[in-house]
Design a protein around this nucleic acid. Structure first.
Lengths: 138, 138
DNA sequence: CACTACTTTAGAATCATTATAAATTATAAA
DNA sequence: TTTATAATTTATAATGATTCTAAAGTAGTG
């Protein structure tokens, strides 16, 4: 038996039934040391490699969105018409490599001292997101 | 005769023929004091109000993209599947009101002291974009 | 085991955007 | 001014990502 019990528990305690599709996606997304940045398209391609158990595209969308709703994934705003998701849901920022379209985590403490001096009356700050676009330096 | 000569000149000097569609869009976008944030959908709706001269949706896309390519518009990355454009092409940041989806300019000097401590080998910084999400403070 | 609510699924529908190819227009040369 | 041609506009089709739908399947409870 594989070590799925953690994911099964996590899913159950989140009010999500531990289906085999969700467990498989959990393992793919969260059973790794580094944080993982992906688009639905990426994820879909990886899942397609296992031809023994196909997961429908609709399920991939459903699963990713429910994981996001439960706070296990963060959606990243990038200047494209693709949604990027990040398994690191903590408060942090990103590099975007504009040559490869790759996202790279930037720890909160790697961005020094952000202070927003302007305020909008009747509004409070929900989050501050920094996107540092990088390119080849040749 | 209206005061289109500035736009005609600007277009011509950019290598774009001053068609009546481009001039009309120029006036709408650039003949104002405040910077203007819009989506193609916004722009399309405004242009539709003048029923005497319809501009095709394809032309709106073409025009906005050529203006962007010439550096007269800046595309803003927002956590949606819509492209926002900004007539302020200078280096600056944004508030995004997550209740209304409205974008508000944030002057460069209103964001204090951004320093990125991490570097990626072989890469140089192209731009730094700060998006401050705000919400109702009740 | 049976029931119910949740989940998955394939395919259709939608929405924004881009491509296409024919008609129109701006420009420069005759 | 007319002509030639290259750029532009246009309606429509095509695409691609995402969401919707409704039927079939599955997990959890009693």
């Amino acid at each position: 038996m594989e070590n799925n019990s953690i994911f099964v528990e996590k899913l159950r305690s989140s009010g999500l039934r531990p289906t085999k599709q969700r467990i498989k996606i959990c393992k793919l997304l969260f059973d790794r040391k580094e944080t993982f940045h992906f688009t639905i398209n990426n994820l879909s391609k990886i899942l397609k490699k296992d031809k023994s158990e196909k997961i429908s595209l609709a399920t991939i969308y459903n699963t990713v969105h429910s994981f996001k709703k439960k706070g296990y994934l963060k959606e990243i705003s990038v200047n494209q018409n693709k949604s990027y998701f990040d398994t690191n849901t903590s408060n942090h920022h990103h590099f975007l490599d504009i040559n490869t379209n790759e996202l790279i985590d930037l720890k909160n403490e790697d961005v020094h001292n952000i202070k927003i001096k302007k305020r909008i009356p009747g509004k409070k700050i929900n989050s501050i997101e920094v996107l540092v676009k990088i390119e080849n330096s040749n």
